[in-house]
């Protein structure tokens, strides 16, 4: 008896089928990766809470009205000049050198190695003598701040820091266009990023973005991550999402 061979299936149309599927997926694919400006909203405040007094020279006030015009520190300003204005506010009184005291800008104070070391020692003893865990955690958080400053000094040298209350505050009107709002936010952020860029270029020869990438690609606690935190400590991002209110809706 002769064995009947099974006929071989023709695979020639395989390519056609695959092509058909391929085209289907090509069409339905949406490679939308979302990117944008990240912001942290302030936590809700109870209504009866007092708003803390902040020195006027420590706040850079940007108001945008319903006609999308800017009023910066009580002067009208074009959006093209906003970045330079914000940069001046942040570094007017020097970061690494004494430039004298410019009025109406926040007073930067020196962060000295010996002072920071003293604070670190102080908090370490607090932690050792803490009574309960919550207290210990609080001390630990404070200690971390000082340790960050120490890292910054080790990497960038002694620097002058912004007072804790210094911030850029933006307020908009209900009628402000979203596009203008984003452009203003973007300019303020780029002011900080350019300062970080300058510092990063000077110290490591790479831009701040590259520094971020490097820190991300290495494991936590690495040298690059320390460098990133050092740059962030010297030039902190202080843009506040202010309470919405109507500014000059005329």
């Amino acid at each position: 008896m002769s064995r009947r061979k099974l006929p071989e299936v023709d695979a020639g149309s395989m390519a056609d089928i695959a092509f058909l599927l391929l085209i289907f997926f090509l069409v339905t694919t949406t490679m939308d990766s979302d990117e944008g400006i990240l912001r942290q909203l302030p936590p809700p405040v109870p209504e009866d809470q007092d708003i803390p007094d902040v020195k006027q020279r420590n706040v850079y006030v940007v108001l945008v009205n319903a006609q999308d015009r800017l009023l910066v520190e009580d002067e009208p300003m074009d959006i093209e000049n906003l970045k330079d204005g914000a940069k001046e506010f942040l570094i007017a009184n020097g970061v690494f050198r004494d430039l004298g005291d410019k009025e109406n800008f926040p007073i930067r104070t020196w962060v000295r190695r010996s002072d920071v070391q003293e604070k670190i020692d102080e908090y370490e003893t607090y932690i050792a003598n803490a009574e309960d865990d919550t207290q210990r955690d609080n001390y630990r958080k404070a200690l971390e701040k000082w340790q960050d400053k120490m890292t910054a000094i080790e990497i960038a040298g002694e620097y002058k820091e912004l007072p804790g209350s210094a911030l850029i505050s933006m307020q908009n009107d209900k009628g402000t266009t979203y596009d203008t709002y984003i452009q203003v936010q973007n300019e303020l952020e780029s002011a900080v990023n350019e300062l970080r860029d300058e510092l990063s270029m000077r110290l490591f020869g790479i831009t701040y973005n590259q520094l971020e990438e490097k820190a991300k690609s290495t494991e936590s606690g690495s040298e690059w991550e320390k460098r990133l935190y050092a740059v962030r400590t010297v030039h902190p991002q202080r843009i506040s999402e202010a309470e919405p209110r109507n500014v000059g809706s005329y």
């Binding site: 944008g36 909203l41 302030p42």
Partner: peptide, 24 residues
């Protein structure tokens, strides 16, 4: 206009969803 966006942001704060992103 920012009116509706401010209202949305206030609601997000009330519900403690504080991390936001303006998609651009």
């Amino acid at each position: 206009k920012m009116g509706i966006i401010s209202a949305v942001k206030q609601k997000l704060r009330e519900s403690n969803a504080l991390k936001i992103n303006y998609s651009t």
